[in-house]
Design a protein around this nucleic acid. Structure first.
Lengths: 255, 255
DNA sequence: CGCTACGTTGAGAACAATCAACCCCGGTGG
DNA sequence: CCACCGGGGTTGATTGTTCTCAACGTAGCG
């Protein structure tokens, strides 16, 4: 479903698709220009292994809010985020939704221990993904221990983030939640070498609320409160300027 | 710290330490009688590999409420739960605590991507653990891909449970949380071949509250409410009888 | 037998959810 | 060109669930 054919170039500003460099001749074609090649599991494997990975992958593009796979849908593939932001979520029968994570370039999605995904995934922004068929990927895993090791590291990292989120959801109040979220966004941006000051917050207030375990209105009010206190400024185009980072850090764990 | 020497026999009813069978001669001594040998990562490796695992392990016993390792403590070891129940938790600077999981026999703990544990672990009941020094364990991992695969499976499973917990913490009300928890306890007991009807709930109300993101009083009230409705009965000795399981299931996801 | 940890229950306060109105902006069609 | 529409966002008023503080029970244990 939703295969845009050739990497959905129409969707992104060229960055993701620009030929980074023609060099490194032995590289598999689709990986050569990839912006996340050095960051994700692809960085953990040798040239030859990368070629094997590339041999089973398809590059896909998604428009904002498009579904990548749905909760309870048959788990056919695994994905690697190449560009854009993705939300992963679980829903209750009556429609209440908890966003379990926002995924950024380099993040890996689609693990399932059942035949079925336990969560859904949708594009927040325009998104480019690498898709790997589950069977082929698992077969590759058996042959490439380094890939398995990289995935284990990724899963352990995810697990740690999930525990942090439990602490946030279980014990923090609205202000602490919002401040913690902004801080983590800033840290991620810095780690990725992106601008962390006019902070880009591509998700809307509903998404934010469903991620932070708050009503959308509470999220909005809390951001407004932080602005009133001079901690942040709300800029147009879903950008947030952090005016006083230490105050933000204090707000993230105050009482 | 806290090494009881010989597996802390004094702490448990004999079950964990009974020689299950003298047979299976090639087995490493400490694993032969182990009650979880067929359930955990130990089940995923060959005899020879199990011997290598056993060669680096120490068996330890802990008394109820004893600390196994502390949050922010140096991550020296990994652990496998052999008997008893363990709580893993994170705390905020001001002492607020979120229990991120209860660990049962066969569960693996102690992953850290830093040099330091991001969470703490304490015994809920009397506990027996296998401890593996981190360095030796990682070295073994490199040599035994099957071990890595088993750990990846375990981590993915944990991750899924963590996402469920986020949904619970972010979107469910008190009654739904308590009911969901009781159901998951029942499911675990059944999967482990234990009694699921007089359900054994070894943790106190504080632990329950800190696990479910509720105040201890709310947990107590909610359990009392379920009892009043005839869904459960609160028996002495931290046992809970499920009188109407389908009502419990309904309560776990009602609105 | 009294201590202590654990658990229950009550009353009031506090925080966030809900319901609702309104604004702002960009897009679209008359 | 302007009116209209709709999505996203803000803000207000009110309600409601859960927290907090506090008193009181209870059971196990020295």
């Amino acid at each position: 479903m939703i295969d845009f054919g050739r990497a959905g170039q129409a969707l992104h500003g060229g960055a993701a698709n620009d030929r980074v460099a023609p060099g490194k001749s032995g590289l598999p074609r689709p990986c050569a220009p990839c912006p996340v090649r050095l960051k994700t599991i692809c960085a953990a494997v040798s040239h030859g292994e990368l070629a094997q990975l590339a041999a089973i992958q398809t590059t896909l593009g998604f428009a904002p809010n498009q579904q990548i796979f749905e909760q309870h849908g048959e788990a056919r593939s695994l994905y690697n985020v190449v560009a854009g932001v993705v939300r992963a979520y679980r829903v209750l029968a009556d429609g209440r939704r908890q966003i379990t994570g926002f995924l950024y370039p380099g993040d890996f999605v689609g693990f399932a221990h059942d035949e079925v995904y336990a969560y859904g995934c949708e594009a927040v922004t325009s998104v480019t993904l690498c898709r790997y068929p589950r069977g082929a990927f698992n077969a590759l895993l058996e042959r490439v221990p380094r890939l398995e090791a990289a995935l284990l590291r990724a899963a352990v990292h995810e697990l740690s983030a999930a525990q942090d989120r439990m602490l946030l959801l279980g014990k923090k109040n609205a202000k602490e939640r919002v401040a913690s979220f902004l801080l983590s966004l800033a840290e991620r941006a810095e780690a990725a070498g992106e601008s962390s000051n006019p902070l880009w917050v591509p998700m809307n207030r509903y998404d934010l609320g469903d991620f932070l375990g708050l009503a959308m209105e509470t999220t909005s009010r809390t951001l407004a409160g932080l602005k009133r206190e001079g901690v942040i400024d709300l800029l147009p185009q879903r950008q947030i300027e952090v005016l006083d980072r230490s105050a933000l850090a204090r707000a993230a764990e105050q009482r």
